[in-house]
């Protein structure tokens, strides 16, 4: 009993330390959230009350378009302005081994020892959508630990990894020249979610035509989605970074007062959906294999339809207890 009291006192002190900015504890809390389970859920619950204040700037775009290098430049600029910045950089996990080489932060090496910059590499761990399953609660804990600006970098994305929409307050879509024609630009997907479109590597020859393609893509949009800024940057030549920063600041000023509440509500809903899906998948594995055999047998013999079978399985998941 005494031990329990002691333990809960310790937990309170640790949580306090985490909330007041202890970097080592923050790093461990992130590992716990990535690991998942009851303890992780409890931690996520405890910190959620202290989260929701940070501005989350999302960077997405194709592999090699220069997201990390661009973030490095932006962090430098924000540090010159005296801001404190956290970066969460997601890289893919190997579908074969589950392992990963997390190399985004090699582009941000100059900030490694700066105590006002927190960088964490996050492996996607098989989660599709450009981020990782734990990212929403990782954002919350970094936010709660007192980082007012969080830059979120997705894995190199294809055309449909739009999960960042729900989590980032401002979405920057990074493009690089030489990857496709104007038909690519009018397809649905990641270009549609950008609040800012960046053409990086603007020192390279084809970048002007990419800017033109993006401009004509915007021409085809309905009026309220037409005025998306297109910014040409070069992370290596340090071009356009000031303009990018200014644009992001303008957008953040125009977000309005209610947006934080709306965003938190959206995140809450997204988190609930993901958790439910996770639970469902877990329950699915728990179903007695004999029952599944039986359902498959009926399916094979045309007694029930695929839809019926799915309905029965769904009920088995729910009735489990």
């Amino acid at each position: 009993m005494i031990d329990n009291d002691h333990n809960s006192q310790n937990k309170k002190t640790t949580l306090k330390k985490l909330l007041s900015g202890d970097v080592a504890l923050l790093a461990r809390a992130i590992t716990l959230l990535e690991t998942g389970g009851t303890k992780a859920d409890n931690l996520a619950y405890k910190i959620s009350a202290n989260a929701g204040e940070a501005l989350v700037i999302g960077f997405t775009g194709t592999p090699g378009s220069g997201k990390s290098s661009l973030i490095n430049c932006l962090v430098k600029l924000l540090r010159d302005q005296g801001e404190k910045v956290a970066v969460l950089a997601v890289d893919p996990s190997s579908p074969l081994s589950g392992g990963a080489v997390l190399g985004d932060r090699t582009r941000m090496g100059e900030h490694t020892s700066d105590r006002n910059v927190f960088i964490r590499s996050v492996a996607a761990r098989g989660h599709l959508g450009g981020l990782s399953i734990a990212i929403p609660s990782i954002i919350d804990v970094v936010d709660a630990a007192g980082w007012p600006i969080i830059i979120l970098e997705t894995v190199g994305t294809g055309q449909s990894e739009t999960e960042i929409m729900e989590l980032a307050d401002i979405k920057v879509v990074v493009n690089a020249p030489g990857l496709g024609d104007d038909i690519q630009a009018i397809k649905a997907g990641v270009l549609e979610i950008g609040d800012v479109l960046v053409v990086n590597k603007c020192d390279q020859p084809l970048s002007d035509s990419l800017v033109q393609q993006l401009k004509s893509m915007l021409e085809l949009r309905s009026s309220e989605k037409k005025n998306i800024p297109i910014i040409a940057t070069s992370a290596t030549e340090d071009i356009g970074i000031q303009e990018l920063d200014k644009t992001i600041k303008n957008i953040s000023l125009n977000l309005g007062n209610e947006y934080k509440a709306i965003r938190q509500a959206n995140r809450l809903k997204g988190n609930l959906w993901r958790k439910t899906e996770q639970l469902f998948r877990y329950r699915l594995k728990e179903i007695n294999s004999k029952k599944i055999e039986d359902i498959l047998h009926q399916l094979r013999n045309g007694i029930i339809s695929n839809g019926d079978a799915a309905e029965i399985i769904l009920n088995l998941c729910v009735d489990k207890e």
């Binding site: 074969l96 081994s97 392992g99 080489v101 997390l102 932060r105 090496g109 492996a123």
Partner: peptide, 27 residues
């Protein structure tokens, strides 16, 4: 990586201060 670990890889020429900071932030 091929054995299922998550590797935080850095280029050469790191300072000791950098390594400490990396080890802490990346847990």
């Amino acid at each position: 990586r091929d054995s299922g670990m998550e590797v935080i890889y850095t280029p050469p020429w790191q300072t000791i201060e950098n390594v400490i900071s990396l080890a802490e932030q990346e847990d």
